[in-house]
């Protein structure tokens, strides 16, 4: 026997069943993200109000003491500055070279098939491997960089790139740019390939130079792609840790210590849990503001 129901009811039943099924299909993923993403975040708010240190017994509630001490710590501000420098310089250089390469490859015809895979390799490498590799390249005695520089200037060069306060940060920047320029390249190339060639042809017929066509026609069209690429790079450079860990270890002194590395040290080496949690929240709020601003800009397009 079948129960006759009118169409609206059947539709409502279907929608109700879909909603339930959908809920149960999303549930496992949501639970994992809640357990490993959200719960630790909430837990760390709690920790940030405790004096939780390796050598001090007990975990007294101290209100905002940890926040006060991290905000008055020069090393913390310095590490934020290093992160800001890395983000600003690395992302700009990566964007410029990436865009330039994308245009070159786009105009290279069949050679694209050879160059694409080559430019893709660094992105797939383990950052720890990249760090080690560049450490060997920068080596003052046994590295090829000083050797090549020596050929160029005509006499022996022995710059200790990674242990010198003025060259260590540029060395890390080069390493970072080497690994992630291909990211910009790949994303921007995808964007450029999608541009309708008729637009550029129309501009060319109107007598616009190639350079002008690129700035006035092509770039505005790929603006959304540019913003997405920059957003992702900014987020990832803020996380920079691996390369620093195996090249300079934050040194010399703390000249190359980005904020993730600083917080890693206060947590893992000195086991100052409350202090580290407070620092993480300061960082989190700063990143959230920046990301909200960038996402807003992306959303506008």
């Amino acid at each position: 026997m079948t129960i006759q129901t009118d169409a609206p009811t059947r539709k409502r039943v279907k929608r109700w069943r879909q909603r339930n099924l959908g809920f149960f299909m999303v549930l496992p993923a949501a639970l994992v993200l809640l357990a490993v993403g959200i719960f630790p975040l909430i837990y760390s708010i709690g920790i940030s109000f405790l004096r939780w240190e390796a050598k001090i017994p007990g975990r007294p509630f101290v209100w905002f003491e940890n926040y006060a001490s991290i905000l008055s710590n020069m090393e913390f501000w310095h590490s934020l500055k290093i992160t800001a420098i890395l983000v600003g310089i690395a992302v700009s250089i990566e964007f410029c070279i990436g865009l330039w390469l994308a245009v070159l490859v786009l105009n290279s015809g069949h050679a694209k098939r050879i160059f694409m895979p080559i430019f893709m390799l660094p992105v797939m490498m383990v950052p720890v491997v990249v760090g080690f590799t560049w450490r060997m390249l920068w080596d003052p005695l046994y590295g090829p960089i000083n050797q090549i520089l020596g050929w160029l200037v005509g006499h022996q060069v022995t710059i200790s790139w990674l242990t010198n306060a003025s060259t260590a940060l540029p060395a890390i920047l080069v390493t970072e740019v080497w690994q992630w320029t291909p990211f910009m390249f790949l994303v921007l190339l995808a964007g450029l390939s999608a541009v309708n060639p008729e637009l550029q042809e129309a501009a060319a017929i109107d007598g616009a130079s190639e350079w002008k066509t690129f700035w006035a026609v092509t770039l505005p069209v790929i603006r959304p792609v540019v913003l997405v690429a920059i957003l992702f790079r900014v987020i990832d450079v803020i996380k920079i840790f691996d390369i620093v860990y195996v090249t300079t270890g934050g040194g010399p002194g703390y000249a190359t210590q980005p904020v993730t590395y600083y917080l890693y040290r206060t947590g893992a080496r000195f086991f100052r849990m409350g202090y580290t949690a407070a620092g993480s929240w300061v960082l989190l709020i700063l990143v959230a503001c920046l990301v909200a601003y960038l996402v807003h800009r992306v959303g506008e397009d």
Binding site: M25, V36, L41, G267
Partner: peptide, 29 residues
């Protein structure tokens, strides 16, 4: 089914954006 709607998918992507150092030690503990 549009489960969760737009907010849910943005909540998911925001997980990717937060710096991992923020949850490293809570997860460790």
């Amino acid at each position: 089914f549009k489960t969760g709607g737009k907010h849910f998918s943005f909540w998911i992507i925001s997980q990717r954006m937060l710096p991992p150092i923020a949850i490293l030690f809570p997860i460790f503990l």
